[in-house]
């Protein structure tokens, strides 16, 4: 089943397991212009992202609006699913919700210790609760 791998700015990892799981999928990144302009994102960040993307073999980099471009690419590639990685960024999460309206979206969770739902609002309490997990080999 054809798929697209959609990288976001919080997960530019050429060794990510989704690349092994979807070895034949086209690799896509989109510089979302409304986001860059609304948040006045600096050239240094754009360059850091771009340089990081260049380490992903066969990466296709686009600029425009993320969800409409993905819809077009999904049609072109006859992709049945779009694969991406978890991010806390609320703007990218809203793009993910838009994408999931027109295709199946597979999101790879980020893995780290102490991942819980209703987290304390003070780090000291969080750390007291999870320090052993964090310090465990």
């Amino acid at each position: 089943m054809a798929a697209l791998i959609w990288f976001n700015e919080d997960g530019i990892n050429p060794d990510h397991e989704m690349l092994r799981d979807y070895a034949d999928a086209a690799r896509i990144y989109i510089f979302d212009l409304p986001y860059l302009q609304e948040w006045n994102i600096s050239k240094h960040r754009i360059q850091f992202i771009y340089e990081s993307l260049l380490e992903i073999p066969d990466i296709q980099i686009y600029k425009g609006e993320a969800a409409p471009i993905l819809q077009q690419l999904a049609t072109q590639h006859q992709a049945r699913e779009i694969v991406t990685s978890e991010t806390p960024n609320h703007v990218i999460r809203s793009h993910q919700r838009e994408v999931s309206k027109f295709t199946k979206l597979v999101v790879y969770d980020e893995v780290y210790p102490g991942k819980e739902a209703a987290v304390s609002r003070r780090f000291s309490r969080y750390w007291n609760k999870h320090d052993r997990e964090w310090m465990a080999r």
Partner: peptide, 13 residues
């Protein structure tokens, strides 16, 4: 590193 995770968890929530 845990601080970073803590911030991510709050942000996701």
């Amino acid at each position: 590193l845990a601080w970073r995770a803590f911030f991510r968890l709050i942000y996701i929530e």
